[in-house]
Simulated assay, not measured.
Amino acid sequence: MNEVRIGIIGVGNMGSSHANYLLKGSVDKARLTALLEKDEQRSEVLKGKFPDNVTVFTDRKAFFESGLVDAVIIATPHYDHVEIAKEAFAHGLHVLCEKPAGVYTKQVREMNEAAKKSGKVFSLMYNQRTNPMYQKLRDLIQSGELGEIRRINWIITDWYRSQSYYDSGSWRATWAGEGGGVLINQCPHNLDLWQWMTGMMPKRIRAFCNFGKYRNIEVEDEVTAYAEYENGATAVFITTTGEAPGTNRLEVAGDRGKVVIENGQMDFWRLRVPEPEFNREYKGGFGTPECWKVEVPIVGKETAHPGITQNFVRKIVDGEALLAPGEDGVKGLELSNAMHLSTWLDDWVEFPVNEELYLEHLQKRIKTSTFKESTATVLDVEGTY
């Protein structure tokens, strides 16, 4: 295959963004050929915006059976991701799915099973994995340059969202429409990076989610979580959509030094002698290991969404390794599910998370949710499929 014909399902904010960079030719060996938008009024608008060689469908079955696409980008509301992906795999299509892969981990496992059965490529739109700064931190951690990880702190409170943002669609910030708040909408990238860079998942977590603390919503808009790892390392994760000005500060400490990423800059303080060795040999009473501030070369630029799509296409055409394979969708989502469940149970949650217990508690909240699909007003904001 020398070219991948791509169809986009869900042509709202993100779907339109994907369509635009594909039309501009930003992704080599890829061509936009189809859009799926089930709302007829919006589909007519799309027909006027896109060239004639991009077919706009309103019927899902017709889209999948058209023979016009080799791969799809799924950019619909979260709950739709799984069934659409499974249908695409059943039609022999490759799938690139927007974050989060699903609302709960059991869903994502089903997606991966369908992908494996189909033999098609399954990737996720974890575009922040293309950031060379996070790539470098991952390298420093997994190569052992930082030594054994002892502590991780991430304050990520610059996800500010106003009440008018939440009011722009009845599905937003509801258990039935979105499946959660800041953890499922804004923070999937951070939760993914957390586990991807370290290569570790916690053994247990204790979280405190506040639901509708700053906004008139039914889901979480503030979270503080504390996690523990098998090797004794700890992590603290703090996020909110109700704080201004916000902070984005990631600090990772190992027994050979510390890295801080903040304000688009990485600072690396390297110990000349690993702390355990210094502690074992030093006999001078007060004292600390000699520390050097090291200039770390950051090579490349963040390619974001087009970069993930390019990697997806190259996997299909040339067999390039995926930067964000579908299997990884479970890990970051499991952190999110664990934080919800810990709050609902008012207790520690062990990993792997009890998926059935999580789903049981989620279903209780879905039943009392204010969102009803029949009265959805998502069209103007996110589009439908």
Rank of each mutant, 00 (worst) to 15 (best):
L362H: 09
M14K: 02
G67W: 00
G254S: 15
S164A: 14
E37L: 09
I298Q: 09
I141H: 06
G232C: 00
M1N: 14
V219S: 11
P132A: 08
G332P: 04
N127T: 08
L96P: 05
R138S: 14
E382M: 12
R150Y: 03
I238C: 10
L183M: 13
P289Q: 10
S26N: 14
T234L: 04
C97S: 14
P325L: 09
Q363I: 11
S66R: 02
D39G: 14
R5Q: 13
S123R: 02
E228F: 03
D52R: 02
I6Y: 02
D255M: 08
C97H: 05
L357Y: 09
S143A: 11
G48E: 00
G383V: 02
S164F: 04
N127H: 13
D328G: 04
G284H: 12
T241L: 08
N127C: 14
V56S: 03
E334P: 02
R5N: 15
I184N: 05
D70L: 04
H340Y: 15
E320T: 06
N127Y: 10
E37T: 11
Q363G: 02
T375A: 10
H81M: 04
D158G: 04
G25V: 06
G177D: 09
E382W: 08
R314E: 15
I217V: 15
Y21V: 05
P276W: 04
I261D: 06
N231H: 02
N127S: 15
E83T: 12
D192E: 03
M125C: 11
Y79K: 02
W194I: 08
G169I: 05
H78A: 13
R138V: 07
R150G: 14
F351G: 01
T370N: 10
M111N: 13
M133N: 07
A253Q: 15
Y126R: 11
C291G: 01
E222W: 10
G300Y: 03
D380K: 10
S164M: 09
C187L: 11
R270G: 06
V82K: 03
S374I: 10
E230P: 02
V252F: 13
E83N: 14
G212F: 14
N263V: 05
V313S: 12
R270V: 07
V236D: 00
L32Y: 01
V236T: 13
K49A: 13
E295W: 03
V313P: 06
G300K: 03
A115I: 10
K283F: 08
D158L: 00
R109F: 06
S66C: 00
F278N: 06
G169Y: 08
R5M: 09
